[in-house]
Each structure stands twice: as C-alpha cells, then as structure tokens.
Design a binder for these strands. Structure first.
Lengths: 339, 339
DNA sequence: CTGAAAGCGCTTACAG
DNA sequence: CTGAAAGCGCTTACAG
C-alpha cells in the first residue's frame, strides 16, 4: 500500500503551486486560472488518484461534511432500516456522510457517544426514536443543530419530523365509513402516547364528520400486540351489537382481530372489515386476506429530517413540526357492510 | 454558541504547555508528569468542557477512528438493522465510529461513496449485502482493509463473515429426524446460491446420517416467497406418498406451506411438521402454531465482522472465513409423526 | 518533570 | 493569472 498522494504531489506533477491545485479542484469561486492550467491540474490529480484529505480540509474550513444519526434502538424494529436509509440518502445527496450511533436508550452511553461525535466534528445531528414518542433532548446536544426524527419534544421548541397520525387515522376511518360502515370500533393501546392519542383524535373527528355518534363501548384498550388485539376483538365480537368494522391501532393488533374473527367464523371482509396502521409489510401482506392499512412513511421521514437539518446548517430558520402523510395501502380487508 | 475550547485554552487555564495537556489527556505511555499537574489539567479540561478535535489529531496521527459500513440495500430487508447494530456496537466498544453508506447496489454510486469515505480517512470497511451471496469487491476498495459481511468473495482470498448455512440446515433436519420423521421434504428456491446450496447440502448430509435415502421427489424448487412455498407444498401434499415433515428454505416459503396445509385440512404439527429458516420474527411468531425455525444471527455477524476488521487494523492476520452458527428457535410447528 | 518547535495536509487571504 | 505564507488544532520527538 503506497502512500496516498498529497496536494503537493499533484502540484509538482502539474508544475503549479499547491494553492492552485486547491483552487482548481474546489472550483473556488472568483479564482482566475487559465483553462490549460486547469486541465493540467485535473489530469495530474486523476493520474495520481488524488483524494483530498478531509481532516486537513476540515481543520482549515471548520466543516466536516458529516452528520450524526443517533438512534435509541436500531435493531428491534423492522422500520429502523428505512429511517436510516432515508436519512442517509438525503445526506448523501447534499454531500454529507452519516455517522451512525446506537445508544440503546442508555443516557450514559448517549453522552459519550455525543462527545465522540463532537470530536468528529459532526455539523449536526438527527435524534431518532424507533417509534413516535415524546423525548427530552440530552443536554450534551446543546449547541449542536439537531432535528428530532419520529419523536417530538416533551417541551420547548425544536425541529421534528413525525407521521401525521391524526390525518392517517381520519383517512383510515374514511376507508370504512366511506363504504357505509356505521359501527366502527377502535382497538387501541392501553397507554396514552403521541401516536395513539392522535389516532384516536382522528378516529373521533372522522366519525363526527360522518354524523356518527361516539360509542364508548366500541373503543377497547388492550396491549398493542396480537394477543391484545385478539382479546379486544373478542370483547367486541361477543357483544350484543358488534361492530361491522374495526380500526386497529397497529397491524399487530389487527392480526389479533383476524384471529378472533376466525375463531368465531366471522369472515373478513364479508362479515367484518378491518383496517390497520403501520404497514408492517411482512405481516400485512401475508395475512389472508391481505390487510388494508396506513403506511408509516419511515423512509420519507428520514429524508425529510436530514433535509431539514441541512437547511438549518445552511442558515435556514428552524422549521418546527413536520408532519408526514401516512398513505393508505389497500389490500383486501375492507368491504361494504352486509345489508 | 461560543467557540469550542482548544487545547491551548486548557493549557492556559492549567498553567502548562499544550503538549503537557495532550500528554495528560491521552495518558501517553512513558510520559512523566507530576500527579498534581495531571489533576490541574484534567480539572481545567472538565471546566471548559474540552473535547479534542479529531481532525487535528487525525491529521497528526494518521488515524481517524472511523470505520465504513457499505451496504447494498439497507431498507428492503428487516434484517439490515441487526447487521448494522451489531457492527456499530462492536466498533463502538473498540473506540471506533461507524460511517454508513447505502449504495443501492449502484456501482457508480458505490465508487463515489468509497471515495468520500477515503476522504474521511476511514481506516477500514465492512462491505455488507443484505442476504448471503457471492460478490466481487469493487476496485476502489483496493488498499483499504475490508471485511465482507453476509457475503462471500466470488474468488480470491478475503475475510468474510457468513451464516453457517450447512450446519443450520443439518440441525433443522435433525429437529425433524430426531422426532422420528423419515419422509422429510425440502422446499427450496428455484435458483442456486450460497445459502440454498449449503442448506441443501446440510439437508442431504443429515438425511444420510440417519440412514435415510434421498428421494428426489421430496425436493421441490419454487420461488422463495409464500406463494412459491404454497405451490411446492401443494405438490408434496397431493402426492401419493406425502412427506410427514417439511424443511422450508426460508420462513416465507414456510408460510406457504402452512397455507397449503390449511387448505387441505392437514394440521400442523399433528399431521405435518414444518421447520423454516431465517426467523423472520414478525412472521414466525405470529403464525399459528408458531413456526419453529433456524435463526439467522445478523447481529452476531455484524459484531464479528467489525471485530475481525479491527483485529486486522491492529496488525492481525486476515482470518478468511468466519461461519456463524444459526440456532434453532423452537415454537410449535414440529411434533413426532403420527404412528 | 515540562516546554518550544515542527509538522500533519489542506485553504485562503494576500502579494506580485 | 499564479505562488508564498500563514494557520486550522493537535501530537511527538527533542531539548532542557
């Protein structure tokens, strides 16, 4: 492995000064260099396979060309890859490289990670959580431009990118009410949270828009996994006046609704329409019938967050809240109610 | 945002020379500095919140403390996150930061990405594919220490980390044969490839170890998705002498086996045992009964690859092939054959 | 036991 | 139109 060529090597080969090489290779604005000189410099650089050293440049320019992606838990959700990929793509398009750190949610590790990132002179950070929740930015991040990704600030101003949960939920209910359903249940998580709260708000808003009264018995709280969805659906289906459609907080719960229906001979979508949320691909596409659901736009959120961060670095104003639409993915679990 | 403190600021506050600060903060071996001086330096650094500038250090030491993770497609597989997380963790533990680049499999983008990474002075690279396949390392990577992750070289020597497909397949067949099954089918991908070839080899080896003859009619090639698995299982179950157990090339195909069985009133596991491969979590755990399958150790592979790379950077010999075991995850789809 | 000096590889005013 | 010089913030022989 021979030594990497330096700017001086290029300069010597081209017969110019290093500063001229710099000016040519960076297309420095306002610099007047003869075309023939430019050609010679470029040829020399190509011949040597010259790649500038970002450290030297960064030391001088005080810019690193890197952004941090700080995530709490990368692996445990199948969406993480999309969030990361979206951010990486947008960063790349703007000439930035992404440095990835996974903190596992450990504050002490997080602090050391941010310090390491500062040492690397990252210009800004994406602070991502793997599902939509409210967070408090760690103090170490003070002074570093930061955008929250799939997270919202517990308090105070911040730029953040989250799914438009409420509109998504409204659209989900519209898929059902638009087909004529009047008794539409909402199977939701036990606990409150930014996602479930807004989905419920959307559910209620859309019912109201259709002139449907909110029946508290049609809103069932359970754990947001398939077993919870199954229990919730059991309660609904065994009631005297069961719903004709179910809006499930997430796809996992929708799986449970499928199971409860199957156990009772209730057919989907003939006897019961079901719509989910998240578009957990491997699940929603493999159910029979395929699950109609609202997609969580992770890749798009990643892209948007990176772009928002870069815009701030370029001197733009912090943008506050970015809501990203959740499009419906129609498969086969919704049909008109039986007459 | 005030200016970040430099080593000179710490030196002035502590009343020493910058070089002394460097020596103290880096615990430079063989340097003799009085304990009281050390304390003063450390206190000054803490007071100012001093974080050394990696660029300046790297320029001097010719080390960056960063590694590259170059992936072809990050998002499209739910495993990618694990691969990345494992690599990131192991890198972090050794004091390295991971820079992530997603090439989408585009050679031109790949070349530019590697150049950008070289500019950033990465010390080595992890070249990852999102499923086990054979690749040719791009030329731009020449001279940069590289470890293949979930990929093997088409030819030539290289350090690479892949799942131990054959042993995994042997263990899968053992789960079935060990329960007394004699007619064990293998539902496999249409095309050859490093993964399927080795899984078939394992299947055949384990059959032989149990004194079972290979019945070519029990090996069915289909597309490796659920529809393909369903077609393959249909052929097997409708045959005059159907198998009592199916080893599916992957979990997606196993889903299809479930469907074909259900359509025929064949119960799993009472009438038919099924074992998959991959442990596509959301799928395998949500089927009824839960799918017994061989887990692909992505996180472990990521960790191992990063460690192998770092070992090489530390002067170790390139290690060649690393096979990572695929443990069985028992759920409920395997039982003894009916007497 | 501690400090002064050189130098890593660039970029950018500035001089000519 | 091009080159010489300074300096970004560190580390590391070396001198004392």
């Amino acid at each position: 492995m021979t030594r990497r060529p330096r700017i001086r090597d290029v300069a010597e080969l081209a017969g110019v000064a290093p500063s001229t090489v710099s000016v040519v290779l960076n297309d420095t604005a306002g610099a007047r260099v003869a075309g023939s000189t430019r050609d010679r410099v470029r040829a020399a650089a190509a011949e040597l396979g010259y790649v500038p050293n970002s450290f030297a440049r960064g030391l001088r320019t005080q810019r690193s060309g890197t952004l941090a992606f700080i995530g709490d838990v990368i692996a445990t959700t199948p969406y993480a890859g999309d969030l990361i990929q979206g951010a990486q793509e947008a960063a790349w398009e703007a000439g930035y490289l992404l440095i990835l750190v996974n903190t596992g949610g450990d504050p002490e590790l997080e602090e050391r990670a941010v310090q390491a990132l500062r040492r690397q002179q990252v210009e800004g950070a994406l602070y991502a959580t793997m599902y939509h929740r409210a967070v408090t930015l760690p103090e170490v991040l003070d002074g570093l431009p930061t955008v929250l990704l799939d997270a919202r600030p517990v308090s105070g101003p911040a730029t953040f990118v989250v799914p438009d949960e409420q509109t998504g939920a409204e659209d989900a209910v519209e898929e059902l009410a638009g087909q004529g359903h009047r008794r539409i249940a909402f199977v939701r998580d036990l606990n409150d949270g930014p996602a479930v709260d807004r989905r419920q708000r959307g559910y209620e808003a859309r019912l109201a828009a259709h002139g449907l009264e909110l029946d508290e018995r049609l809103v069932v709280r359970e754990r947001s996994d398939s077993a919870g969805g199954e229990r919730a659906a059991a309660v609904l289906l065994d009631a005297p006046d069961p719903p004709t459609a179910v809006f499930a907080f997430n796809d996992q719960m929708a799986i449970g609704v499928y199971r409860a229906a199957a156990a009772r001979g209730v057919r989907i979508p003939q006897d019961l329409s079901v719509i989910g949320f998240d578009d957990l691909y491997v699940v929603s596409s493999e159910l029979t019938p395929g699950l109609t659901t609202m997609a969580l736009p992770h890749r798009e959120m990643g892209r948007l967050a990176a772009r928002a961060l870069i815009a701030e670095l370029d001197g733009g104003e912090p943008a506050g809240e970015h809501l990203v639409p959740c499009p419906v993915v129609r498969r086969g679990s919704v049909a008109p109610p039986r007459p």
